[in-house]
Amino acid sequence: MDRVWRCAGLRWAADGPVLTWQGGRTSALPWGKRVAFEVAEGGVRTCVGARGHACPVRAAVPGRSTGARCEECARLDRAHSVAADTAADDPRPYHVYLAWFGPGLTKVGITAVERGPVRLLEQGAICFSWLGAGPLMAARRTEELLRAALGVPDRIPYAAKRAVRSALDPDPAARAAELSALHERAGALPDWPESLEREPFRPVDHVGVYGLDGRVDGRVDGRGDGTVPEAVAEVSELVAGGVVSGALVAAAGPDLHLAHGSGAVVLDTRLMTGWPLGPAAGGADGGDRLTLPVRDFGQGRAKGVQGGLF
């Protein structure tokens, strides 16, 4: 393999999803772009390090790990995260939000005000609304208030998010209804921190941003019916010598939905990090191809390495 790149993950920009690579290179991902790469034959997945520093021992990490970090680097990375409650002196203002991923799948969370909606895009939120904004500790207390009083979780497994994406109600108002009711219940709770400035319910819908409505810039794309192929399976891990090739039909959070046969397969880009990757044979002109382990959504179990899904 002449060229070997290492993926640094997916980020969301104003124009949509962008793959980032170690060394600073980026690859924009417009709808319809063919995502095609091959995992280096004999390649080993190595730890991506922490906080901008390389892993000192280049430790090998499991193929199914979405963190792609060894135990020591994972500990170091989390020790400096807001999620770990180790940054109590952070002076920045924080938003408290409610995010909806599908029926019965709503969570509460916080994100720095300066980040805007990026954190919600990273998580794959279908729609969201701000609850309020204020100092970090006030935001934390509000988050805990909703968990304790209303049973609203602060985490939802990605597998649960993926399972409902292809069966969303087409009406944005219907998608926001559950979120609206919860926002009202949250606002009626006593004991809100005084330093948190409350915000009214203003739902923001990401279905169009993710391409899940089959439209690009307001136009129905090449599928012609305003829909995207149903996601029927997900890549469970990358393996040395494995190949992926498929047109991008949608993306949400870290997930790319790639056309394959009559449906789509979901590739979590976090599984790509740490692997040596190169161009697949045929590149942008190649057909749909997948030689990686996949998990069928219908059966909920992993399949073996195979040449096709359908």
Rank of each mutant, 00 (worst) to 15 (best):
D285A: 15
C127I: 02
G208Q: 09
A160V: 00
R64E: 11
P203L: 10
L179R: 12
C70V: 05
A79W: 00
P56S: 09
P293H: 10
R6Q: 14
L271H: 08
A173E: 11
G116V: 07
G261M: 07
L196F: 11
H53C: 12
L182A: 07
W21K: 09
R202C: 05
L238I: 08
W275E: 09
G214H: 11
D221E: 13
A280D: 01
V18R: 01
P293L: 08
V209G: 04
D169T: 05
G102V: 03
R119D: 11
V96W: 04
H95G: 01
R270M: 07
G283H: 13
A240H: 08
L258V: 06
D285F: 04
D154F: 04
A163H: 12
S129F: 04
R78H: 15
A74R: 11
L189N: 01
P276T: 12
S180K: 13
D288R: 01
V164P: 01
A99R: 02
G16C: 08
P229I: 13
R202T: 08
T26G: 12
G63Q: 02
G282C: 06
S262K: 10
P293R: 12
G241C: 07
A188K: 12
V39Q: 08
T273W: 00
A74Q: 11
L76S: 07
D77H: 02
A176F: 01
V220E: 15
A74T: 00
R223P: 00
L145T: 04
E72G: 00
P193Q: 11
C73D: 14
P103I: 04
G298E: 13
C55A: 03
L212F: 01
A74V: 00
L145E: 09
V235R: 03
T111S: 15
R92M: 06
F201N: 11
P193H: 07
L76H: 05
V207M: 07
Q123E: 14
L76R: 14
G134A: 09
P279F: 02
R119Y: 03
E197S: 10
L136E: 14
G308L: 14
L179G: 07
R301S: 10
G224L: 12
W192I: 04
R147T: 04
R51A: 15
P153H: 04
P229F: 13
A138R: 00
G224R: 03
D15S: 06
A88L: 15
A139L: 01
H53N: 06
R155F: 11
R75V: 02
H257D: 14
P254H: 07
E197F: 06
G187M: 08
S81K: 14
R198I: 01
L238W: 08
H206D: 12
A50L: 14
S65Y: 00
G32Y: 14
G304R: 09
T26I: 11
P103N: 09
V235T: 07
V61I: 05
G16Y: 00
V44Y: 04
R51E: 06
E184F: 00
K303S: 09
T106F: 02
V61C: 13
R155K: 03
G222S: 05
A181Q: 15
T106N: 09
G282I: 03
E38C: 13
